[in-house]
């Protein structure tokens, strides 16, 4: 029963969700919305679990004086400071908002802006023309990049009565070969998702329960 119970539950819930998609019966819609509400409740409870996990992870690191254990103090102090600020001064205005606006948001923006450098290094590696495929990628990448800036529309001319510029070639690359490849991938993804869902509903796949056999 310990194994069959969750599988049976997954089957019933999965079938309800599947039927809900096909029928306009409001009962199924109500059930669907009810489960969405429950999900929020479960998420709220597991957030406590997650916070507890974070605290334990870092307190153990401090206890054992593991490498770089000092940083764990920063995490724990940051967590406590935000919680206390929210409890004492509430979340509207006050130190909580100040810390969020002036500490968390800039730190997140910094991480995001690092992407520019990572894109440069990754592009350098990808565009090294060592093979035919890499050379093709380099040419396509250069055309698309040039086609995305205003000067791209000025490079080119009339061929057979049609205006052909770097921008139009870039659009063609994005809308024809690139889109075809993307659609091919998405089709496979769609089938993979459906197959996974069916496997879970029918109880063929149970790894998500922590039981693979």
């Amino acid at each position: 029963m310990k194994r069959q119970g969750p599988v049976l539950l997954a089957f019933i819930i999965g079938m309800l969700m599947l039927i809900q998609f096909f029928t306009p019966n409001p009962l199924f819609l109500r059930i669907y919305n009810l489960f969405l509400d429950w999900k929020q409740v479960v998420l709220g409870c597991t957030l406590i679990l997650g916070t507890w996990s974070l605290i334990r992870h870092h307190t153990r690191k401090i206890e054992r004086k593991q490498e770089n254990w000092q940083y764990s103090y920063v995490t724990l102090i940051g967590l406590a400071a935000m919680v206390l600020a929210a409890l004492i001064w509430k979340t509207e205005g006050g130190p909580y908002t100040w810390m969020f606006q002036n500490m968390q948001v800039p730190m997140q923006s910094t991480m995001f802006s690092l992407l520019a450098f990572f894109v440069a290094s990754a592009s350098y590696r990808a565009f090294r023309a060592r093979t035919f495929a890499a050379t093709l990628l380099l040419i396509a990448g250069a055309v698309v990049m040039l086609g995305r800036v205003p000067v791209g529309a000025l490079i080119g001319g009339s061929i057979g009565g049609h205006e052909v510029t770097v921008s139009t070639v870039a659009d063609w690359i994005l809308n024809v070969p690139n889109l075809a490849a993307k659609r091919g991938i998405m089709m496979g993804v769609g089938l993979g998702m459906t197959a996974t869902a069916i496997k879970i509903i029918l109880g063929i796949e149970t790894t998500y329960l922590g039981k693979s056999d």
Partner: peptide, 15 residues
């Protein structure tokens, strides 16, 4: 348990 742990809900905080 400490090897499978929660970090944060923030996207770039997690990164």
């Amino acid at each position: 348990d400490e090897n499978v742990y929660y970090v944060t809900f923030s996207q770039f905080g997690y990164a």
